[in-house]
């Protein structure tokens, strides 16, 4: 018996190793090598076709003096400042309503979730029409209501809020589901106990519902932040990054530097910095939200 177990142990250890090899091969080529090579790229100027040129810290110096780099960060922050509260507010509203005992709940859920599964390019082409200044549905509605038309995509002030609005419409269905799941996990006795202690509806919401939804809120923050820095197809289709670079996103800027100007070293440097900003922002958000929950 003992001998048998030992043999079985040996066998599984070899198979385990063999089964894990495909992953290591993939990791070596498509993760480890790119990561290491990005460390080489950031110190070079390179258009892929002619030999690499060592520039030392040149790319970093350039980055800090590059107005468009800062513009892309500002644009992304502007996007997040509108997108995140809008998303949390709407998701919370619909989740609370759907948590009531009503008929056709499944239908509503499915309807709100629909934009989540449809490709971003379809959504962008559709909203391009809705946002159109002369003939867009949104402006037709405004005009019919006797209000002034809004230059959704054509004015530097409105362009990013419009993109944020569209992104909220696309993503909020997912967060409705996450918040709803969170709500359903709250035990009923918590509310009953609070009711006995004389808590008002608002107090119950503030001190029971919100803290219990914390994991879902963290999820929204993290996914939205990553999403904000990864915006690409939306500005690519809707505005090309304009007007006046006000919708230039991090991803679009990397793309332009790499594939319009063939600056691989600089594009990699941008990617490097944006990646660190994403990680930093996500870590800070996590800390803050967890702190809030403790208080």
């Amino acid at each position: 018996m003992k001998v048998e177990r030992k043999i079985a142990g040996n066998r599984s250890s070899r198979t385990g190793f063999l089964l894990s090899l495909p992953y290591w091969a993939w990791f070596a080529f498509f993760m480890a090598w790119p990561l290491l090579f990005s460390l080489v790229l950031v110190f070079h100027e390179w258009d892929i076709y002619t030999p690499m040129r060592w520039v030392g810290l040149g790319n970093f110096v350039r980055l800090f003096q590059d107005d468009l780099f800062w513009q892309a960060i500002l644009n992304t922050l502007y996007f997040l400042v509108i997108h995140i509260p809008l998303q949390i507010g709407l998701a919370l509203l619909f989740a609370v309503l759907l948590n009531e005992k009503i008929r056709a709940r499944g239908f509503f859920r499915a309807a709100y979730f629909m934009p989540v599964v449809v490709s971003g390019i379809v959504i962008s082409l559709l909203w391009q029409q809705l946002f159109s200044y002369e003939n867009g549905i949104l402006n037709l509605l405004l005009a019919r209501a006797g209000l002034a038309r809004i230059p959704w995509l054509t004015s530097p002030e409105w362009a990013m809020p419009s993109v944020a609005l569209m992104a909220t419409w696309k993503n909020v269905g997912l967060y409705i589901i996450l918040f709803l799941a969170g709500l359903q996990n709250i035990p009923a006795w918590l509310y009953e106990a609070a009711g006995i202690d004389g808590a008002t509806a608002w107090q119950k919401f503030r001190h029971i519902t919100l803290p219990m939804l914390n994991p879902a809120v963290i999820m929204v923050l993290i996914l939205s932040t990553i999403g904000g820095f990864s915006l690409f197809i939306e500005p690519y289709v809707l505005t090309g990054g304009g007007p006046m670079n006000r919708t230039l996103s991090a991803m679009l800027y990397i793309y332009k530097q790499a594939f319009y100007f063939n600056r691989m070293g600089y594009a990699a440097t941008l990617g490097f910095f944006f990646a660190f900003i994403i990680l930093a922002v996500v870590l800070v958000q996590r800390k803050v939200v967890e702190q809030e929950a403790l208080e």
Binding site: F27, M31, W33, L35, F37, S38, I226, A250, L270, G271
Partner: peptide, 24 residues
């Protein structure tokens, strides 16, 4: 180690690897 490596790779934003991956 593998579990840790996988968790690590899931944290890497695509912005970081996109250009080197294209060059590959």
């Amino acid at each position: 180690v593998m579990v840790m490596v996988i968790l690590f790779t899931m944290m890497i934003p695509f912005q970081l690897t996109m250009i080197p991956l294209y060059i590959l």
